[in-house]
Design a protein around this nucleic acid. Sequence first.
RNA 1: GAGCCGUUAGCUCAGUCGGUAGAGCACCGGCCUUUUAAGCCGGGUGUCGCAGGUUCGAGCCCUGCACGGCUCACCA
Length: 499
Amino acid sequence: MRDVKERDVRYEKLERLEKDRDIDVFGHRLDKVVPIAEIRKLEDGTEVEAVGRLHAKRAHGKLTFGDIRDWSGRIQIALEKPVLGSEAYNLFRKYADIGDTIWVKGELFHTQRGELTIAVKEWKWMTKSLRPLPEKWHGLRDVELRSRHRYLDLIMNPDSMKTFMLRSQIITAIRKFLYDRGFIEVETPVLQPIYGGASARPFITHHNALDIDLYLRIAPELYLKRLIVGGFPKVFEMGKNFRNEGIDSMHNPEFSMMELYQAYADYTDIMNLVEDLFVYLVETLEIPQPIKWLGKEVYVKKPFPRIPYKEAFAHFTDGKITWDMIDTEEKAKKVFEDLGLEMKKPPVWINYVQEIFDSIVQPKIVNPTFIIDYPLEISPLAKKKKDDPNFVERFELFVAGVELANAFSELQDPRDQLERFKKQVEARRQGDDEAMAEIDEDYIIALEYGLPPTGGLGVGIDRLVMFLTGKDSIRDVILFPLLRPKKISDADLGESEEE
RNA sequence: GAGCCGUUAGCUCAGUCGGUAGAGCACCGGCCUUUUAAGCCGGGUGUCGCAGGUUCGAGCCCUGCACGGCUCACCA
């Protein structure tokens, strides 16, 4: 046999179709496109037009069955030689390959086995597929190929298509929820001369005309709060943040974030809003509960528990670790060491406490839970509690041990903010390369003009989508996650020979 | 960044003790009017991730590299 590669076979078919039969396999526009799922609802006898990718072909001499699929579903087609005539029939038999996208016109009927089928009277190509599809039964399994060639994943794995459709619906629903509550959607700079609003290493780029370095934002926070200073009552932004850090099943260097700010609100208002939002999403998107995520069964049900940071230790350790056991550096260090933990950060009180929280408290949380009132040290943009200035009006929402949201009553006092910025810059000088490099003086000036009391929120969209779709890897909910580029060889493009 | 694991046909995978490359699907040729992972007959299409090394002989053993996965570290 001469044809060694399927791709070559298909290119030869393409040439024969074009040269010998003058057929244009790269089709043209259609007046109407009905999703296959909609066609499936119609009665037998209805004449329908359908388009889809051919996923299977079962030929029986003068009768050939096929399966076509689109994003919404699959349907069987049947082509009979006497109906189509030998020209159109043989064209399908010999030249329509699995992977081709075709248009068919015909009547709906049920086969002897009861399968809804289109009895095709007419068909044509929408486009030719020149490469063989992955195997029909197992689909495309290889995790790397699924991310690298997402189109193949979407073609082969209906579950993947469903996940990304749901992602889009989640984002639409979040917008609707916020619009309905009077939030105004805004866009703030992705390219920032000074980065802030979070602690992370940034990507650096350069603007040629101005000859300045710029940073890709690690958060939109400081710009959004300037808008509250300017008089916007409620704003939100949904978009990409960029953090120049490691990649794992919870982190992608570019990720989607929704931040919102509401004037004259505080973190308790935001907590109520988050609770409402989660319930709204689960209800409107009809997500069945419990949601199985990261090996846990999660129920989204109001009210979400609200546990102060200080009390969380006792709460999740059955009283074995209490706040008064860790409220000084010396005591916290002892508990830390008794737990067999190893300190990789500067050995100060807050780091011992945070490490204990991360390893003992956080993993125990299953259902949506607000941890509230964080230590001041780890919250440089949050407002202090009136009755306890060592803590701030802040909460984080955890689900299945994962942080999904972070919010606080915003710090309004420019003097306090400047001091905290200075501490950040000092930490930076001490070697913390995730602390702020530079004080955002304009932001301090904005605070001097006056930030009204404001509640702010950030929600990690990718993680939220992971949760609502039950996916354990962020790569399953980002269409094109960052991968190290792989060279495509000439052979892969079929140009190794004399072509 | 560290440890472990993986990389064999387009895809999903097998490959024993180191003896010269396998299956299913897909594909090619043929038969077939109710199949649906259609079936039957015939056909194997390969840079065994890459580069070295050991060996009479390497998919298999050794070294380095590349890409990926998991765990850890990092990520308030």
